[in-house]
Design a protein around this nucleic acid. Structure first.
Lengths: 150, 150
DNA sequence: TACACTGTTGCAACTGGGTTTCATCTTGGA
DNA sequence: TCCAAGATGAAACCCAGTTGCAACAGTGTA
């Protein structure tokens, strides 16, 4: 489940400091991991990566930083249909929202962008008078490979 | 956040027994609660309701039954944007999928059905060759009342 | 109606992701 | 360089959900 290439390296750091938040070593470390991740990582994976750079970093700091990033809309939290227990996964917020499709057989996660999705959100904003801040569309089912094989 | 009226009372029980699953007292109790719920309930609320009918019922049984119902596609599990910690909420699976909108200010949950949503899922099935079993679209933001007041 | 097979229940102990508390340390502006 | 506000680490904690196991109860069969 590769993520699209980082649009702007250092973007998260810039976004944090422009909001007047402190850029500590630990935050820089965590930010760079989230920013360059090739897959969706959960908190414990982020911690493991972070400790390769800064062995003293604590899991509490990872949780706190992720919470901060989420609160500022810089990362999105995913459940990926709870395929792996209650873990949450994180990805930097993309320019354009996408849909996550989780194959319940092989576990692969695919992403998909769609005009229809954008239009749907527009419809909701208009018809429900609902101001959207976050949206999460997760789909569980079987991917093309798993459907054909067997 | 009222749920639409139960289409077929006893439907969940019928669905379970038609699949060859045992209809125990405890299951009947839990099923009737889920079936007639006026809001989205989490496991502990379901347990509390169930104990009014059968005081001996154990929370483990509630968890196991909800898992069973979910596995058989009879109920859907919702996160409601994690507004209340890591609780999961349950609703009997509706005829037609709907979107959940969670107001991050007042906590109200609204539901919305849309042709665009159905078309979007159709597009995914076609273009991604992905066979959809479950889908969950949750939106967080501000509802009409919270936008206007203040 | 009784039997027996097998799935289900209740209990207690456990798991694991995430949070709280608090003393200590660091950041970034003056 | 100084220092107040904010961030960190360590340990204890919380709590939703799970597991292992002995006892129990539906359901099909005779």
């Amino acid at each position: 489940m590769p993520l699209p290439q980082t649009e702007a390296p250092g973007h998260l750091q810039a976004a944090l400091s422009s909001r007047g938040l402190r850029l500590t070593h630990q935050r820089r470390t965590i930010l760079s991991i989230v920013e360059t991740a090739k897959q969706h990582l959960d908190a414990s994976q982020i911690l493991r990566h972070a400790r390769k750079i800064d062995p003293g970093i604590d899991r509490v700091t990872v949780y706190r930083t992720l919470k901060l990033l989420k609160r500022h809309g810089l990362v999105d939290e995913l459940d990926l249909m709870h395929m792996q227990g209650e873990k949450h996964f994180y990805e930097r917020r993309p320019q354009r929202d996408h849909i996550h499709m989780a194959c319940l057989r092989c576990g692969k996660i695919a992403e998909f962008e769609s005009d229809l999705f954008d239009r749907l959100k527009g419809q909701i904003q208009r018809e429900c008078q609902f101001h959207i801040l976050v949206s999460r569309l997760e789909i569980g089912g079987y991917c093309a490979e798993c459907r054909s094989s067997n």
